[in-house]
Amino acid sequence: MFKIGKLWREYRCKLWNEFYDPLMSRSDLIKNVPAGLNMEQWAVFVDYRLRPSTMNMCNRNRDIRKRQVIPHTGGAMSLSRRRNNLKIETGKNIGRAEMWKITHKRKNGIYVNEEALEIGEKIDELMLTNPKGGSNISPEDPIGVIFGKEHPSRVRGLSYGACLSLAFKGSTTRLSGMNHASSSSTSSNVEDKITQMENELATVKNQMNTLLAYIASRKDVPEHFAAIAANLVHASTNEASDYGSGAPSPNQVIGSSAGSKTD
């Protein structure tokens, strides 16, 4: 589908370049319809090409193409087909680095210009230090080292439709493993913090129960305050059946309070 879209865009550009004349008016351009095309569709296409936004986009793209100082010699054959043919001929995998060198050389084996020659020499140096880097496709291969981070929607040296998750599948798996290990470590840290908080909360709860029990047992505390303290102790300890921490039970608090009031 990417290839079809590219061919369709190239055909439209070729059609416009052949039939467009800046000295002709809109009506004359529409009358100059190419053979085999519907005039209504041609009129829509002419209006689209004469639109100011379209003309600005074409001028911007033309300037971008002028700044591309390293042309390639790949021709019409896609990189995937060329790579597959080379794999059949040589019997080995062809990486991005080797493909870049092939598609930037002329038939006589000379690079297209000095800029391509400099990059080719850098690729050769990196391939000498890491021979496997020339056949592997990864962010750490010579192309990734020289040109840097890839665009999210395309990968250098690969055909149409290539994306990072598929092109660098092995690297993505390693990164996923690292993220899983990191997430497991993070999960363990969170569990430790939760356990620590629960222990601290239980300690504070026991201290509060002891304080409330002391308030409820005091003779100089008003009766309704003592009853409130006893009820709070009963509510906070209702879920536990015993008190290993040393905090008094509600019965002990109430009994102690009642004994103090009657004495």
Rank of each mutant, 00 (worst) to 15 (best):
L211G: 06
Y160N: 11
P248I: 14
R26F: 01
D220S: 06
G120R: 08
G91D: 08
V221W: 12
P34F: 03
A167F: 04
Y243N: 09
M24G: 01
I215H: 11
Q68V: 03
H224V: 04
P22M: 00
S182N: 15
D28V: 07
L128F: 15
E150W: 11
K66Q: 05
N56T: 10
A162S: 07
Q252T: 12
P248T: 05
R62A: 15
I123H: 05
L158Y: 13
S182E: 13
A235F: 06
P131D: 00
I88F: 12
G109S: 04
G161W: 14
I194S: 03
Y48T: 13
D63S: 04
N130R: 05
D21G: 08
F147D: 07
E121L: 11
L23Y: 01
V112T: 13
A216I: 00
E200A: 05
F168Y: 10
A162Y: 03
V221N: 04
R81S: 07
L164G: 00
P248M: 09
F19R: 06
N84V: 08
Q252L: 08
P71A: 01
A97F: 09
T203R: 15
Y48A: 14
R49G: 01
M208D: 05
N17M: 11
W8L: 10
C163K: 15
S78V: 08
S256I: 08
I4T: 03
W16E: 04
K87A: 01
E140G: 05
A247R: 12
D263E: 14
S135N: 06
E200G: 11
I102W: 00
I70F: 02
N93H: 06
A181F: 03
N199V: 15
N17C: 06
K169G: 02
T195H: 05
I4A: 14
G170H: 13
G109K: 08
P222Q: 02
M57L: 15
S184D: 06
S171M: 04
C13G: 05
L29I: 14
L128N: 13
R12S: 02
G109W: 06
H72L: 03
A116K: 03
E18P: 00
K132D: 15
I215C: 07
L23M: 05
N108P: 06
V44C: 11
V190E: 03
N85S: 12
K87H: 07
G5K: 07
F168I: 02
L86P: 02
S185H: 04
M77Q: 15
V221I: 15
N84S: 08
T73W: 01
K261R: 13
Y11S: 11
R174Y: 00
E140F: 03
E118I: 13
V44G: 14
I94R: 11
S188F: 03
S138V: 00
M178V: 08
G109F: 02
G95S: 07
S53V: 12
R106E: 03
A43R: 06
V112I: 13
Y111R: 09
R96Q: 08
S241N: 12
T54E: 09
F2A: 12
R154S: 06
P152A: 05
S236Y: 09
R154I: 14
A213V: 10
K169F: 10
P131K: 04
E115Q: 14
G157I: 11
K6I: 00
E239M: 02
N136W: 02
W100D: 09
V145I: 12
W42H: 03
N61M: 07
T129R: 12
V33M: 01
K169S: 09
R106L: 04
E198P: 04
